[in-house]
Amino acid sequence: MRISCPICGERDRREFHYRGAALTRPAPDAGEAAWDAYLHLRDNPAGATRELWYHETGCGAWVVVTRNTLTHEMPGCELAAEAAR
């Protein structure tokens, strides 16, 4: 598996740490349901998903990868810092 880091180019999956679904952190007072959803509940799609990976042994960038969980195709990868702005 290869991931196209926006900074380093295509690199082996071994360089990356996987985190999971790219979600928005709720406000502290968003309530129990919002926090439960953020931390625990997942769409867990069989298909396209947006997820966070960390280029741990590369440039140290967190990236948002668009990936298909059925085929492992990866059509997109952007810096998380830019995606979050």
């Binding site: 985190r19 790219a22 966070l52 960390y54 967190w62 998380a80 810092a81």
Partner: peptide, 18 residues
């Protein structure tokens, strides 16, 4: 050590990029 480093980068880049 590794986990905390990753965590700090996550918090910075993903939650507080500004």
């Amino acid at each position: 050590a590794g986990e905390v480093m990753r965590h700090l980068q996550f918090v910075h880049q993903c939650l507080r990029p500004d």
